[in-house]
């Protein structure tokens, strides 16, 4: 395994977090502490606010017009919604991988990986690109065409490229929004294996609508559900085994056993 950033035990938690899109109260009173250097899965039916919750953690939620947040997200005890916090600096510590692979179409494969690197130049920059590509197991597949377009890669390769791009910045937390939902089963399995491997270096939060995936990749699982007014709430969170085999809440049990959603 190629050395990436030294693992840091960044603590991440939300307290009484509420998120809104205009008048819509999308997320209500979510308080959840993520275990450092572990994978936490956010599960729940469509519209339960899991993606919104994920997007509040790196403050990408707020770029939508009419979007706002109340409550706190604490990264190493510091509220990221404090006016003194620069969202740019925050997003360099909290990386994100999206639902569909979104490589930058006009940049080469190498430039995609290095696009978030502002300080490194020359050889150091190339090393960072190689390191990130090796970390996602893509180096051997693309090392001979680093200068070509990422659009020629398969969907799974593109998604790993996007992961490499996020890792190159050396974040401490990695947020993943249904990262395999647009991929075929084999590519999905690759990504899941990668997530497992990365979990000893990063605090990972993954949104998934696939319960088997949550069971396979996560150490902890948080179950969310929308209330009558459509606001997403955290129902229950625990070690993944506990959630799947001994859910405490009736609604969690119903969801896990496939009774709805």
């Amino acid at each position: 395994m190629i050395e990436l950033a030294t693992p840091t035990r960044a603590s991440l938690e939300s307290r009484e977090l509420n998120a809104y899109y205009g008048d819509h109260h999308a997320l209500a009173d979510v308080t959840l502490a993520f275990r450092p250097l572990a994978v936490t899965a956010l599960i729940g039916p469509s519209g339960c606010g899991k993606t919104t919750f994920l997007r509040t953690l790196n403050r990408i939620h707020e770029i939508a017009s009419g979007a706002r947040v109340t409550g706190q997200v604490l990264l190493d005890e510091e509220n990221v919604y404090d006016p003194s916090v620069d969202p740019i600096a925050l997003r360099r510590r909290v990386g994100m991988v999206f639902q569909r692979p979104n490589p930058f179409p006009t940049l080469s494969i190498a430039d995609n990986v290095s696009s978030g690197l502002t300080k490194l130049r020359g050889e150091k920059r190339q090393e960072a690109v190689e390191r990130a590509l090796r970390a996602v197991g893509l180096w051997d597949e693309v090392s001979d065409r680093l200068r070509s377009s990422p659009l020629a890669l398969s969907g799974g390769q593109q998604q790993r490229l996007c992961m490499a791009r996020a890792l190159a910045v050396e974040p401490e937390v990695l947020l993943m929004d249904e990262p395999t939902s647009a991929l075929d089963p084999i590519s999905s399995a690759n990504i899941e294996e990668l997530i497992r491997r990365l979990s000893d270096r990063y605090t990972i939060v993954i949104v998934t609508h696939n319960m088997q995936q949550a069971a396979r990749v996560s150490d902890f699982t948080a179950f969310m559900l929308a209330d009558e007014s459509g606001s997403g709430r955290l129902i229950e969170s625990n070690e993944t085994n506990q959630i799947f085999f001994h859910p405490q809440d009736r609604r969690t049990e119903d969801y896990i056993s496939g009774r709805f959603g």
């Binding site: 790196n58 990408i60 770029i63 740019i88 600096a89 925050l90 997003r91 360099r92 990386g95 994100m96 999206f98 569909r100 979104n102 490589p103 930058f104 179409p105 696009s115 978030g116 996007c162 791009r165 996020a166 910045v169």
Partner: peptide, 13 residues
């Protein structure tokens, strides 16, 4: 998604 991808890397708008 392309703009969001860039913002998520810590680039300014």
């Amino acid at each position: 998604a392309i703009l969001e991808g860039a913002l998520a890397l810590g680039m300014t708008t």
